[in-house]
Amino acid sequence: MSYQNLLTEQKQRILYITINRESKLNALNAATLSELHVAFAAAFADDSIGGVIITGGGQKAFVAGADISELNALDKAGAEQMARNAHDKVFNFIENGNKPVIAAINGFALGGGLELAMACHIRVASENAKVGLPELTLGLIPGYGGTQRLTKLIGKGKAFEMILTADMMTAEQALYFGLVNHVVEPGDLLPKAEDLLQKILTRAPLGVAAAIKAINAAGNADGFETEINGFTQCFATEDRVEGTKAFLEKRKPQFRGK
């Protein structure tokens, strides 16, 4: 499928999604959010795709935020509809997907851009990346999950500071506080993301999906039950049989996602 605001390319089992609005610093307008839903829905349903790497076009920004011109045109009801729609079809949709998604943060990840990166399962940042939630400078608060995911990732106190001051973090600061997993030189950004995802793709796909679901349930009332259910369901898979057999035979397992 062709997109107006995204570039997609599949290499072996990895789908690369590039937000292609470089002149707008890859800001998330309604059309881009809609295309992201379509692209991720297709990726999650495609058995030939094992995982996704998402990045921004150009060198300046992953995503510099939401499209302010669109926000300015909204009334209260329109803002609620936009936020709920974005949560359901993009941010929560990515986080709760059945395949691993890695954000390759190449430059600014601000507002909705950082919220998009936080919805991904792993974040790799370029040394020149800067991240932040500056919504309070507009008289707003984060509306795409920022208050919730940031608090889970870096803790309540630091989340308060970051959101209330609207200050940005450098890549190294983000690494220190656990907001990103790795910081690399700009030229190593995609290779690092690829290395991580390739390693994940050697694991059992159904097990990966179960792990994603269980980790997302951490802290919920049913978190332990989700883990037990996932663990139990894995026992009914061919991949579990192959994995234990390969271990006992001292060889690499050949997982098939069954």
Score class of each variant (00 low, 15 high):
L110D: 05
G58H: 02
C120L: 04
F91T: 09
P186F: 01
I102F: 06
A73S: 09
K11S: 12
A30V: 12
L175C: 07
V184A: 01
N220C: 05
L25W: 04
G139S: 06
I154H: 10
K89G: 05
P100K: 01
K76I: 09
G145D: 11
E238P: 02
L190M: 13
F177S: 10
T151F: 04
A79H: 00
L164S: 15
V184D: 03
E172M: 11
T244N: 04
L175T: 07
I105M: 03
I154S: 11
R149E: 14
R13H: 10
K199W: 09
K258T: 15
T151V: 12
N85A: 07
L7C: 14
S34P: 08
D195E: 12
T32I: 11
P205T: 05
Q233T: 14
A109E: 06
E80M: 06
A159Q: 12
G155F: 10
K199N: 01
N229C: 04
A45S: 14
A83Q: 02
A73I: 02
R149N: 13
E135D: 15
I212N: 00
P100M: 07
D222Y: 01
I53A: 06
K245M: 03
L25Q: 11
M168Q: 13
D195F: 00
K11N: 12
L153D: 12
G58K: 01
A79T: 08
G219L: 06
G132C: 05
A73Y: 00
F247G: 06
R123E: 09
A45Q: 14
Q233C: 09
N181A: 15
V90W: 02
P205H: 04
G155K: 08
D195M: 05
A221F: 08
G146A: 11
R84K: 01
L7W: 08
T244F: 12
P205F: 00
N181Y: 09
L74G: 06
D167T: 15
F108W: 09
F177N: 07
K245H: 06
E135L: 10
K258D: 15
L179E: 14
G111D: 10
T18R: 08
F40S: 08
K252P: 02
T165S: 14
I94N: 02
A30E: 13
V52N: 14
E194M: 02
D188P: 02
K192G: 04
L201S: 01
M169L: 15
A204C: 06
Q12K: 08
A129W: 05
I122C: 03
I94M: 01
H87K: 04
A45W: 04
R251T: 15
L153P: 11
F44C: 07
M1G: 01
E185H: 05
Y16E: 07
I105S: 00
A79I: 04
L140N: 11
A171P: 14
P205G: 03
I14R: 05
A217F: 01
K258E: 15
V180Y: 04
G107M: 00
H121C: 11
D88P: 05
F247T: 14
I102G: 03
D188S: 10
E249T: 15
A210I: 02
S48W: 01
S2V: 14
K76R: 05
N5E: 13
T32Y: 03
A210P: 02
K11H: 14
H182V: 13
P142K: 10
L206E: 07
D88I: 10
A218R: 06
T55Q: 10
I212Q: 00
